[in-house]
Design a protein around this nucleic acid. Structure first.
Lengths: 225, 225
DNA sequence: TTTACAGTGTAACAACTGTTACACTTTTAT
DNA sequence: ATAAAAGTGTAACAGTTGTTACACTGTAAA
């Protein structure tokens, strides 16, 4: 493993529990392979078989789902270090449910399923972290479900904005452009732009570049009703 | 455990791997409790803390999510034996994401989290089954996400109907009424009724009581575009 | 059997979103 | 610096869905 010295798993949600010694064993013993991909490349297709754990070691990717009618539904942006779709490794129908596209140059480590099982059996903390991470992913999906079930675009925006701003804050930096946010909401881009400009016109929010500011929390919450 | 003789976990997606001996140990040693609930009772509320595994031993329940705007989103109907929301047991924010309401009289076994961890550490097959079941649940949620992202009601119906009918079949029995199906789709009931009657009028499907028949697969698939 | 009540069919209208098109601005690449 | 591409603002119109209301039917309880 030539790139081993670059690897830092201490921030990884499922590997951080491994002690230094464990990590060395982990990396030395592990029957894994690392592969690099360029920017803006579709590296996993919806439907591909998922028979190993893919760990994003560096860079970032986005995941999106293609609906049967051909339209896109953005799911999330994933930054290293984090496993990709670990929940599907053990499912009876072990196919990726999403497309994965690189946003930067990335390195991805492929760890065979058997190795993951071995790690879990020998390392209780790893097992708990793996379970917790999958649970958190499920919670993320549930939240996504809730967002999609809101019927109006302004309602979705209110849900999204109220979730983004930290407690006692009223400003945050948007890390998506309008097209990506529209995909995330599952709506058309001009429709999102219309709702945004209306909310600005009504004095509920203000936008300058990537900075969003909430001007009127009360009326923003009213959009949810 | 007085109700032990009634218990049959051989069909349970996460317990069926336990051998007879294991099962006896499982049930005898397990620090668990069983509780019965009447029909049509709300037994778990969205937001309740989830610090144990709740196993539905007999009967059936439905799960639904309450959107911030107050509308319902039906999630699924669960029949015994199956665990309820096992994915959330290990999440950092361990709260139930849904309301659970009984559809019949039910019995529910409560197994403390520590017991589940112990079982997984001592029983590899149980661990794999637990992982697989959670993976399958995630896949279910992903499918649900896909359904919700379809924008037209006829498109949702097409997706749903094509998924329900078995291969080489054209008829199936609907186990939801119109109101429940509308909640499942996240749409208004009269809107669903309109779409249904239009598709009947157009000769794509026919409905009599709970029996749905697909008359024209080609045009049904076209609804997805 | 009669009486409720849940479930369904339907209609008119309001509200919202999608589509398409184009001008304009900002960023990126050469 | 300049050209190309990506991102944004906006408008008109069509299409779909939500809302509300009410009649009708089937089903379960008294």
């Amino acid at each position: 493993m030539k790139t081993m010295e670059k690897v830092d798993l201490s921030d990884c949600p499922i590997c951080s529990s491994l002690s230094i010694d464990d990590k060395e064993d982990f990396l030395l013993d592990l029957k894994c392979s690392i592969k690099a991909y360029p920017k803006n490349e579709l590296i996993i297709r919806q439907g591909d078989v998922c028979d190993a754990l893919y760990m994003l070691m560096s860079g970032s990717v986005k995941t999106e789902m293609i609906t049967e009618n051909g339209s896109l539904l953005g799911i999330e942006i994933i930054k290293a270090p984090r496993p990709l779709a670990p929940a599907f490794l053990f499912s009876d129908n072990n196919h990726f449910p999403v497309d994965v596209t690189t946003l930067q140059e990335v390195e991805i480590m492929r760890i065979p399923k058997e190795e993951i099982i071995r790690l879990m059996m020998t390392n209780p903390d790893f097992m708990k972290q793996f379970l917790t991470h999958n649970s958190n992913r499920t919670q993320f999906l549930t939240n996504r479900l809730q967002l999609l079930s809101i019927k109006t675009i302004k309602g979705k925006l209110a849900h999204f904005l109220l979730e983004q701003v930290a407690v006692n804050e009223k400003t945050f930096t948007m890390n998506r452009n309008q097209t990506e946010l529209a995909d995330f909401f599952g709506v058309a881009r001009p429709s999102l732009a219309r709702s945004l400009s209306e909310m600005v016109k009504e004095g509920i929010i203000s936008i300058s570049k990537k900075e969003f500011t909430i001007l009127d929390f009360k009326r923003l919450r009213e959009q949810l009703e």
